[in-house]
Design a protein around this nucleic acid. Structure first.
Lengths: 207, 207, 207, 207
DNA sequence: AGTTAACCGAGACGGTACGTCAGGTCTTTCC
DNA sequence: GGAAAGACCTGACGTACCGTCTCGGTTAACT
């Protein structure tokens, strides 16, 4: 997950494994307290009980570090079988909203996305470690709904991929916009309304 | 639109009106060339042919300045009558996508949203000068569709307002996410697919 | 005493006479509170109840203003007849020391002298309004001592002038150095010792 | 000689020794070219090939820096045995006058003295590194004169110290006043006249 | 009694320097 | 050879004053 992974050496003192986790945790703690723009690498190093040099040896800069620190947050998303597609969607959207409500996610995620508009490597890093990584949820949910007969099978694989992408953008985008731009909570009522809209859009039949 | 608007005086040298426009234009130019994080107020001042102090006399900081500079971009959104609701939506979404594709919008918008997660005044400023300001498009489109009979009248005003907010979050969120996070172009094909989903979700009937 | 005295006009509003005094008094007050380096012309203008422009219309800058403000302090030096040359010297030296002990003199005098090392006009202004102006004390004291027969008449006028200059430099220099550089008080005991030295140097006979 | 001397550490990169000398030399060069009031720490840093932060790490500000830079100038004063007290005095006074004629001394010395009237630490720094440091010359000269029998032994040590202080104030004060305030050269003729006055004052007998 | 020219206050303006802070790099000693 | 420590260079920060300017408005002397 680090940005700088030189060929493993046989000689010299090995890198402390504990340091990596400490640095990422310290980064999240600093995001909570200070937000992205006031977070400094020197401060993160101090919190992690590590020298600044160690930090630079493992990450190229603030952006890469924050992407890794934030990406871990989304790995806790799960999609247990809640019986119906509507319940599955509502469940995962609420989970996603809960993560986005946490200050370390809020503050960090949008900032690195902003930075990524001018940095191709950073954009790719975000796509790989956040976006593509979480599309599994859409795939899993769709497969399960198809098994239940709630969604038809899509014979064209290209069209299927496009639909996954569209759904992902709609879901993630709506929640992010609601939470961060409109600055209103994505609470149960809102999630119900959104799910109804989405489901209707997907199936053409009222939930 | 400035952040610092003391009670208008009768005395003293009046503020240069030309300076405001020059500064906002310079800000957008700097966003294009440098992006948000490398944009410096000193550089903006130089580009605008203005002293740094003049800039600080009118805006509290980088964030407020960028909000004003970016907000102007969205004022060019229009909603001409394209005959059907589907066409109206496709048209405005494409327009919105076109603006978001411009580097000064990309780079600036997400950054100030990120900052706004830790700054209530900034969040309010964004809401007032961007979000609420552009909800006019949703209102106008809905009214027109109702006249055409494409959408039913909504008797409950609270529910109507909630629907407007939901639609705005879904539309804006999806386009932003597609463009900036997924980093794929919101081209005609994608917009068609998205509009179909949205319209179906709103009406329950295929477009 | 102002630095800018344009040719007097016949028409137009005349300059406020009260303003000059108010400005010089405000300058001294600011010197007491802030010292030379933290004194700002804007602050002096405010204290004097005057616009900054008014101040710049009359003085070229901080240095010229301070010279004028400080010069007035030394005009209160007097040389009453105390009966003997020794008493006259002791008296005036104590008076001089008392003025130099005041913070507005301390802080301002050395600063303008320092500035005058790089500004010929300023040096000339200091000479004219402070140095030459106070040499009257030496001249008066010598004349009185010669009348009393305590000092011989000096037939050579060039030599007489050189002696006046020398005495002035020795007296003023010693008191200034004692007060400001050595930072010890020029109290009665010190003044007695200094006067003994000076008088012996002038006459070759113990006082 | 620096103002900030934290307890020496064992760890971390040590401070560059070369930088100190380069900074003080650059300070003197800037004093010559610009004078005290136009000297900026940024410029000094540039001249010394050093970052501004390095400079601030070692000195508290402009005043402390200039005191150190100027103090070094006076260390070149010497008192070789010239045979008689009169010759010794003339020699050292001429040397002192020569240093004071140099622009870096002129411009800097008076300015820091002026500042010291409002800053106790700065005054103490000046006393320690300039005044007390150079009193050695008076002590040495007196001791030598007493050996030669030109001056009587002073049995009372308190009185002896007072006399040293007085002589120092008279000599330094007179030369400084002649050079900077009266703005006349302290040339050989003036020094002869001054020495005659001083010697006569000390011994009561013509030189 | 009007005219008129210079004054006055207020405060914005283009600048320059300030002293601080963060980003990254380099140099030292220790492990 | 990694790691902690901290000095280093770079460059931007936001502030304070500088001295100038542009306003609206005032004031006294000269018509």
């Amino acid at each position: 997950m680090q940005s700088r992974t030189p060929a493993p050496r046989a000689t010299g003192r090995p890198r402390s494994a504990a340091a990596n986790a400490a640095i990422l945790a310290a980064t999240r703690a600093a995001l909570v307290e200070l937000g992205w723009s006031k977070l400094t690498l020197g401060d993160v190093a101090t919190r992690a009980g590590v020298a600044k040099t160690t930090l630079y040896r493992r990450w190229a800069g603030k952006n890469e570090l924050v992407v890794d620190a934030v990406a871990e947050l989304f790995d806790e998303l799960e999609l247990p079988d809640r019986g119906t597609l509507a319940a599955d969607i509502e469940g995962v959207v609420l989970q996603f909203a809960a993560i986005l409500a946490r200050p370390e996610a809020k503050s960090g995620l949008m900032a690195v996305v902003a930075e990524s508009t001018r940095d191709d490597l950073l954009r790719e890093r975000i796509r790989a470690s956040i976006v593509e990584r979480q599309k599994r949820l859409v795939l899993e949910g769709r497969a399960r709904a198809q098994l239940r007969g709630e969604l038809p099978l899509e014979p064209d694989p290209g069209e299927a991929a496009r639909t996954v992408d569209l759904i992902f953008d709609v879901v993630a985008g709506a929640v992010v916009h609601r939470t961060l731009v409109s600055a209103e909570p994505a609470d149960e009522e809102w999630v119900r309304g959104f799910t109804r809209l989405l489901l209707l859009g997907l199936t053409g039949a009222a939930s």
